[in-house]
Write a protein that binds this DNA or RNA. Structure first.
Lengths: 336, 336
DNA sequence: CGCGGTCGTCGAAGCGCTTCAATGTTGCCG
DNA sequence: CGGCAACATTGAAGCGCTTCGACGACCGCG
């Protein structure tokens, strides 16, 4: 394996010059730089990661803490993971995967060993036990904790998404609407995304003078049947439905059909879910969506900026980004 | 951050003794070891990863190359990724994520920089362009390439899975069966898993004297409708269906129902898909499954054994593991 | 009692890189 | 033409760890 000394010898300069030429931290004459670049290419030189980390005091690695939980829509997690990896590479960083089963200790280990310069925490809960473990480690959170003090966070603007749903249904003339949400356990756990969506929806629905019901719902056929049954029993005049539980979408459409309601003529359904999911139903679903890719990309920018700030001895600025959602009108909503 | 020297000072020994105590590469008296362990705990010492990699000539990191493709069932990928991470941690290894968009160069970079000691390639194709880039890097492949010469591979035994389907349908008395496969493009690409399943199914079906049709099928409602339509037109007496395309399962069940066939009374459906998927349909699907977790675990064992072999100067043995599939009988198959 | 052999410990070298202080070189101004 | 920048380059130190060879202490054996 070629070392920096090999390159230096081949280019007829000293190792330090090669280092400076490659890092650009000091000016190097064009002539010298060219010779060095040629030698690097010829020898297929790549700096040794360990040595670089040791001497340079940064590992050029960020850690990505993925959840083990499976009650979230997994493809989204994967999408975020790949967008994080791609975005990190743009900064010449690599991505280390850590799972929750090591718990907060995993994060402590990274901090203490200098393996990673920063962390991205996915699927952050309101009161996430991983946050205290961060210590001095630079971090970006995907999801909003209760107390984001001094941390960088990025998330979908779920409140805006909820509001968008209310707007759309109100615009179409619906007066009685129902919100079919996540499983009760999720609300009990005070998952931020679930609550914020609901709050946004509720507020805007009230502004529009809509009457509405919220029904938590397990993402199963039976769960959905129960939720829908109670909605139609409590308020049979309901014509607008908002679903935030991926598992309930298919059942809901079937149940509406079998109860004699045609979508979108008799009932409008609007989903809070990824594009791909919304498109694969019949009828294709009007949906409010956020970009998972964007989430990952921004989280990377946030850690990167924190890392470079902390390298310069500055106090990294905290930062909160809420990504605006998009409403895509498809075939499942219509005027009443 | 505490260093090995700090620990040594606190324990009243030399740094090398601490190193030996922690690695166990040389005997250390119980008394000394205890003092060292106490100091380690008190100081919260974790060896610096960079220094360890530099001096020890191994990074304690394996890379995991995940596909960017989305025409595979993503949760499986995620499951493999987490099981790899968990298994790697058991060996005190961490996992670095690399995506295909860097292509073979990404792998070359890892090899040259010594960032990773080994690689696991997921979703390996028959003629995978990443394989030549491996060079001297220790690797395990998840999936079977055309020429696994000298490499370690692990995959589901798709042929056995296909055979299991044929067995089950034959046992139940079905004589005319259909295999609803992946999209034609997948067969044209000669994806190993698709072909092997089909081969295994075909051979066993013939042994049982079954008559059967194979229909590639896009994973959409329309695609499935077309495939099923042709099957029922060509051979209306077909009563057994094997589906290997996740996207076709839902549509198939609906289509059978609307064509007046009750499952499992009039037609049996057996799916080649993950458990979780099979369970969520009504009726719950009889399915042939392999364990994704196991795939990841074994791949890790394979790289680990190769890494330690190569550290000892031995030639790592190649290894091929095909995981036997399991048939889980649920509600979608019955005697005819 | 002396010799070889363990056993436990230590000092020092070195892994490949970054970075600082210092050196040599050139060019410009007064 | 002397002196002082500014620039390009270098040697050497050191990051924190592993590992090798060496050393002293202690044991049992002849």
């Amino acid at each position: 394996m070629a070392t920096i000394a090999d390159v230096a010898r081949a280019a007829g300069v000293s190792p330090s010059t090669v280092s400076y030429a490659l890092s650009g931290k000091r000016p190097v004459s064009d002539e010298t730089r060219r010779r060095i670049e040629r030698s690097v290419a010829e020898l297929g030189y790549h700096p040794n990661a360990g040595a670089r980390a040791l001497a340079g005091k940064r590992a050029h690695i960020i850690a990505l803490a993925v959840p083990l939980r499976t009650d979230v829509y997994v493809p989204i997690m994967m999408e975020i993971a790949t967008s994080v990896t791609v975005a990190a590479r743009k900064h010449s960083y690599d991505v280390l995967l850590i799972t929750n089963d090591e718990g907060p200790d995993g994060i402590r280990r990274l901090t203490a060993s200098g393996l990673a310069d920063g962390v991205i925490l996915m699927d952050v809960e309101l009161d996430d036990k991983r946050i205290p473990a961060l210590g001095k480690m630079q971090a970006a959170l995907i999801g909003l904790p209760e107390a984001p003090g001094g941390l960088s966070c990025v998330d979908h603007d779920f409140a805006a998404a909820g509001a968008l749903c209310a707007d759309h249904l109100a615009d179409l003339g619906h007066r009685d609407v129902a919100f079919i949400g996540y499983a009760p356990g999720i609300y009990r756990r005070h998952a931020g995304y679930a609550e914020r969506t609901l709050v946004g929806f509720r507020a805007r629905a009230q502004e529009h003078g809509l009457r509405f019901l919220h029904r938590p719902c397990e993402g199963t056929y039976e769960g959905t049947a129960g939720a829908l049954g109670r909605i139609l029993a409590d308020r049979p005049e309901t014509t607008g439905f908002v679903v935030q539980n991926e598992g309930a979408i298919g059942p809901l459409l079937n149940l509406l059909r079998t109860s004699g309601r045609t979508v979108p003529e008799d009932a409008s359904v609007i989903a809070l879910c990824p594009e791909r999911l919304a498109e694969q139903y019949t009828p294709a679903l009007t949906a409010v969506t956020g970009s998972a890719k964007e989430l990952g990309r921004i989280a990377v920018e946030q850690v990167m900026s924190r890392i470079s700030a902390s390298m310069c001895g500055e106090q990294p600025a905290d930062d909160l980004v809420l990504l605006p959602p998009t409403l895509t009108i498809r075939e499942s909503t219509g005027p009443i």
